[in-house]
Design a protein around this nucleic acid. Structure first.
Lengths: 196, 196
DNA sequence: AGTTGAGTGAACAGTTGCGTTCAACGAATC
DNA sequence: GATTCGTTGAACGCAACTGTTCACTCAACT
């Protein structure tokens, strides 16, 4: 039961690796069973033997990819007391992750319709959790709290990182700085306009 | 030559309308010739007679859709002297347009690979023009000018509007306000930190 | 040494899309 | 009334992807 199972596991791993590679290069929507099989160096039939449908491949693929990423750590951010410092720290950590995972995240977001519901839900929950950690440090109350939460959510979004760091060519620290300033300005207690 | 050509033009118009509708509902990538024909109430052959390939349909489709939109007017924004006021005005105008065109823009951006190059180029040029109009009102110089330009570009992006007004459920004016504050903070002459 | 089973190769049936050809209809035009 | 031509219906060839079946090989396990 050892050498044989090992070989089987290896084949399975090659299939998952191939799926990860294709998801990250052509995107989940364009990833066909035939392409996975070819990339993995096995037959379509072998892929079907290991995974009944595309969704189960996606699940294994997603888990494996996640396991080899350095994920952001909201639990660590939570230890920082100062709201803006916590925010800066969190965004720096998150944007580092976004940078590492750019290709994959870009394509997965584009093909979000093809992502199985559980994975989508987990992603949303993770983002919600990060938002809560960052927002909870702020003392603002009332309707302004909603606005601060919203701009924090905006700062956390992958599309925001992409807009700032890829399309606008900002460096990561400058992008973080801009988003911190945004939250700071929205959270500021005295809006004092000169045109008042 | 009158009644007949009129009928031909009507058929052509029905095809273009069908293409617009499908681009805005299922997206350009999933818009097939057969679906266009069916929606227009004609045969695939008729579609092929009017348009040699998908790109020419896209061009006609894009032009027709644009003609029935109320496009943003950077030339009007340019008349406002105060930088922040010009910015606020421009973003309000642009976000109104984004709101009207949400579905279409969302799907076209998703399927951007299927958009013919000329249309893509025109869109980029338009966004670049808006950025220039808004940035030119600011007096900042040096490296800070790049950063102000970048956050203006970020504020102008459709993904930013989508993040703020759709995902974060901000109202249009509040979203505009947040982005104005962002640019104001980045453009501010004295960063004066209390932690300095 | 015999059995198990992962992997192979080939083929099948079904779907969807593209692009093209042909004969025929029918209404507008001359 | 004859002609033009936009439109139609049916069909064909091509390509790609999905699942599934069957017979087969060969290494590994008992």
């Amino acid at each position: 039961m050892s050498r044989r199972n090992e070989a089987v596991g290896l084949t399975r791993q090659r299939i998952v690796d191939a799926a990860v590679e294709l998801h990250g290069s052509v995107g989940p929507a364009a990833t066909t069973i035939a392409a996975i099989a070819e990339t993995a160096g096995v037959t379509r039939l072998t892929v079907y033997r290991h995974f009944p449908d595309t969704d189960s491949i996606f699940a294994a693929c997603s888990a494996h990819w996640m396991s080899q990423q350095i994920a952001p750590r909201p639990d660590v951010w939570a230890k920082i007391g100062d709201p803006l410092e916590r925010l800066r720290c969190g965004l720096t950590d998150l944007y580092r992750f976004y940078r590492d995972a750019e290709q994959m995240l870009t394509l997965v977001r584009r093909d979000v319709e093809h992502v199985p519901a559980p994975i989508k839900a987990a992603t949303i929950a993770r983002e919600q959790g990060m938002r809560d950690v960052l927002l909870s440090a702020f003392r603002v109350r009332g309707p302004k709290r909603d606005r601060v939460g919203a701009v924090i959510g905006h700062a956390l979004s992958f599309s925001t990182w992409r807009s700032l760091c890829v399309e606008q060519h900002l460096s990561q620290p400058v992008a973080v700085d801009a988003m911190v300033k945004l939250v700071e300005a929205v959270a500021a207690p005295a809006p004092r306009r000169r045109t008042a």
